[in-house]
Design a protein around this nucleic acid. Structure first.
Lengths: 227, 227
DNA sequence: GTAATTTATGACAGTCGCTGACAAGTGACA
DNA sequence: TGTCACTTGTCAGCGACTGTCATAAATTAC
């Protein structure tokens, strides 16, 4: 990536040093039992500097998955607008998983280490879910943009929330059934995505409101609906 | 409720005093700007005692909605097992909202005050969502029990996650459209629940695997589906 | 190549959330 | 009334996190 000056390279290196040091210490003695001072000492920087790289102690553990979410957002923006929301979200997610599976072994190892840690630490798992939902708003905005509706469109909110739930369920299910092999993650994702599609009515995703197709009419803006 | 001895009444009173003091201070000067010491002083107890009533500063703000979740869990357990999961969850939720709408004006006011605060404070909103998801596991366990499947049943996970998402979407939508009037909350809930039902295939809830009903067959365990 | 400017870092002091331990006060029950 | 259980206040302390200032290093300008 863009390593322009000496300064930027150095920053990137200390960032990785902090992540690695933290991941090692967390794995050794647990997340809660590890202090920021220890991480800083292991990475050979001052404790104050740690907080210049990561806002909280949690962030250093979640930084890698968080980067993944950025990638997903970019992938979503790149999907063709013909795809209905749920399909596009699914493909964006698949792209992220695929990218992860094909990346540098060192990076993959780091990522798996982080995920393993997160999944075995309740506090981190909760934090991870929290960040996941923080991104939900950004996903909503992107989907709303694609669909040409407002940020407050109820169906868009629902579609994104549903997708996030499905993804979360998939990961959770992976965790319970101790599936940590990288390769099978995408298989699990496909499975849970397929189950969701099976539970949903075809076309629920994108009601034919704007370019009114013949033979039907559905109120898309005001959620008036028959039982 | 059961206020047996003088002691219990006193405890209940200080608990309410702490909640009221906290809610007032939070409303006045903001959540982050308020210290636990201030709350304790306002409620006329020592700071240490505060933490004997609430594990964290967050808890005092979220305690009321949290109580609501307990009620919902109880309502769910009381629903007849003939109801499929999503229906039962919906009814349990409606019962909670109804209970809230019919309760003591003082309590209602307190609850609305808390909700208003939570929804206007990002940190609290995040915390609220976190607790909501903490209860997801308990909901899963209850639904799994009702359906006679294991805790790791994928469809159960999915159904509960979906329901939680729908409820969350409903609340979120209420927040965006500044609907704080108590009465219309249940209307909104009905609307968003109806939208969800409309998006889903009938019977997705409870696949006829175990006591095979006549005339249909759906693969419920392995999610194989055509694109 | 040197000077000026920006930027990263370290050191220090401090706030606040939260906890353990002990002692004193208060309701419960005989 | 006296004993017991429970609640509370006080104190001391840990650890996450922040503001501030001085120093050192890298970048830019001359």
């Amino acid at each position: 990536m863009g390593q322009h000056g000496l300064r930027e390279r150095k920053k990137h290196r200390t960032r990785l040093a902090l992540i690695d040091a933290a991941l090692d210490l967390f794995a050794e003695q647990g997340y809660e039992a590890t202090t920021v001072d220890q991480i800083a000492a292991a990475a050979d920087v001052s404790p104050r500097t740690f907080f210049r790289y990561f806002a909280t102690k949690e962030d250093v553990a979640l930084s890698l998955p968080l980067d993944g979410q950025e990638v997903m957002l970019a992938e979503l923006a790149a999907r063709p607008s013909e795809e209905p929301p749920f399909t596009a979200l699914g493909h964006a997610m698949r792209a992220v998983v695929a990218m992860l599976e094909e990346s540098d072994p060192t990076e993959t190892a780091r990522f798996l280490k982080a995920r393993e840690l997160i999944e075995s630490t309740p506090a981190l798992l909760a934090g991870s879910m929290h960040r996941l939902m923080g991104n939900e708003r950004r996903l909503i905005e992107e989907v709303a943009r694609r669909e040409g509706v407002g940020d407050d469109d109820l169906l868009t909110h629902f579609a994104v929330a549903l997708f996030v739930s499905v993804a979360r369920t998939g990961f959770e299910h992976c965790r319970v059934n101790d599936v940590s092999i990288t390769g099978s993650i995408s298989a699990r994702l496909d499975a849970v995505l397929a189950m969701a599609e099976e539970s949903l009515r075809p076309g629920w995703d994108r009601p034919p409101t704007r370019p009114v197709p013949p033979g039907q009419f559905i109120e898309g803006s005001s959620g008036q609906v028959a039982t």
